[in-house]
Design a protein around this nucleic acid. Structure first.
Lengths: 300, 300
DNA sequence: CACTCTTACGGCACCCGTAAGAATC
DNA sequence: GATTCTTACGGGTGCCGTAAGAGTG
């Protein structure tokens, strides 16, 4: 008897091209997944993977099965979704969050997701964009919300919000100056995130496009720490406008205009293109619906 | 976790409108089927059957699910069929066969089916057409091969062969006469099958349409016995041309012409319209392919 | 009282995870 | 030797069938 479990195991093993990752995604031991696939092969009377090499690759039969497996799983998901609705989203969801999103959007999203999908267990992983993309592609993460769209073809990047960045400095550092001239930029230390972060990548592009030179460069992988460094007068940095507002209000930082203005950064929802699970679809819808990168009020 | 077993149980229970019949069709105890459905209901978070009455009827949610369940099962069947092919047809198949088909087509069909589908266990039930139709509709039989098409809307009747019937008599009974005149017909006993059989129904229509009168009527539900009665000179009967040939060759019977000629009887493959199983589809294809109602050679 | 479905329960089969093995690079 | 998948095996969950129960007409 054919079971959905078997087809699911095959689908993810084929999609991720790795039994261990597929097992992880299905919250299953790798050995069990292997057996499910072996069972499916015996059901269908032919091998779906060629095990002769170091790693398993799809046989022609396996390639033929893949689209059919996708269709079957999607049909099953549609069935559940249309009748059970939101209650169908359950289990564990591992997702990545960029630094900025982690400090602004994440708490609100988690709160909302917990309410809409009470059966869902969320596991957010905060890291830099590049690292998150890698883990989404490998299947370790179900999706990620990061700055900038990915260049990876295996991932789909859905823009969900534009965030305006502005230059920030400690009042003592810039005195009365409120405009960032090229000279000023060259004389001050600029604090950014590591190049693996989407925001820093975009910033580098901006520098390059405008032929700007920076003075000292200081990289820190923690946005809150960067803000602290800015307030302490170590250097200037660019921060989300909404995120900076409370600091400005408290007189701990001032905004510097620049010409041209800093680029508006697009944050994207990224997931594997071949990930057809309702979990991803539903959470994507939830993310798109709830896109506010300003600070939660209680932190302001 | 949704399983195909659950959906299958629901689909047949809803289609047959009876848990016990559905259980029989799935070779399952009625209690297990009941539990599978209860499990599905808890999965989906709503009742699919309204149990308040004497028998369960679909709730609106159940009605919404039915087409989706059909689609899911069909998708799963397609998957198996396209990869496993003939090997996917297995299990037990209960089917009905009319008298004529039982003595001519059945042995050959069974032999062929056993060869094409080695994993399939066949359970032929020989009976009269009407009775078989009832049992197909109720779900006790998977399909039937009988004379005439059914008037039951729940059944699909696919014509598979036309069989020419001719009048047969013992040589001693008719002397040199080889033509069946209305007078001769009225003076002889006519041996037919009971009215529940398709062939007898068609014959009655023929009589009525031509304003013929018959003399004594003798009904027997066994075709071989009828042939024996004819050979013994008890009366005349109509038998399939090909089936009669060996008797004529041995001089035990002669063919009588009639004007108009006896109707050509269409045999049909009958199954429930909503029966989407590959088993039925495949065997239907096999039946259509192999339609020879002549006697197996070893019996001639 | 006949019919249809549900509940209770003992038993067994299946599936899972741990751990060790085999094969490739 | 690291990685990837398979095999072996003990343990537990879940599903099945029998049998009794509940509710309807």
């Amino acid at each position: 008897m054919l079971t959905l479990k078997q087809v699911e195991a095959f689908y993810w093993a084929a999609s991720l091209a790795n039994f261990a990752l597929a097992a992880g995604r299905l919250h299953l031991s790798q050995s069990s997944l292997s057996k499910r696939i072996a069972e499916l092969e015996s059901q269908l009377g032919q091998n779906l993977f060629d095990r002769s090499g170091h790693r398993s690759v799809l046989t022609p039969a396996g390639q033929a099965l893949l689209p059919q497996a996708r269709k079957l799983l999607r049909t099953a998901d549609d069935l559940v979704e249309s009748l059970a609705g939101a209650a169908s989203v359950r289990g564990v969801c591992r997702f990545g969050v960029g630094e900025l999103a982690a400090l602004s959007w994440l708490p609100r999203f988690v709160a909302r997701a917990r309410k809409v999908y009470p059966e869902l267990v969320l596991e957010p992983h905060v890291d830099l964009g590049r690292a998150l993309e890698e883990r989404v592609e490998s299947g370790e993460l179900d999706f990620a919300v990061v700055a900038g769209s990915s260049t990876r073809t295996a991932l789909s990047s859905q823009p969900i919000a534009k965030v305006r960045f502005v230059w920030a400095a400690a009042p003592a550092l810039v005195g009365e100056r409120r405009t960032l001239t090229p000279e000023l930029l060259a004389s001050l230390a600029v604090i950014t995130m590591p190049t693996d972060a989407g925001s820093a990548r975009e910033f580098d592009n901006w520098l390059l496009a405008n032929d700007f030179e920076v003075g000292r460069r200081l990289r820190c992988n923690n946005l809150a720490a960067i803000a602290g460094l800015v307030v302490a007068g170590v250097g200037i940095s660019f921060l989300p406008e909404a995120w900076l507002a409370p600091l400005v209000r408290r007189g701990e930082a001032v905004v510097l205009d620049s010409r041209p203005a800093l680029p508006v950064l697009a944050y994207t929802f990224q997931a594997r293109r071949d990930d057809i699970r309702p979990l991803v679809r539903q959470l994507k819808a939830l993310v798109v619906e709830e896109v506010d990168f300003s600070l939660p009020s209680r932190l302001q």
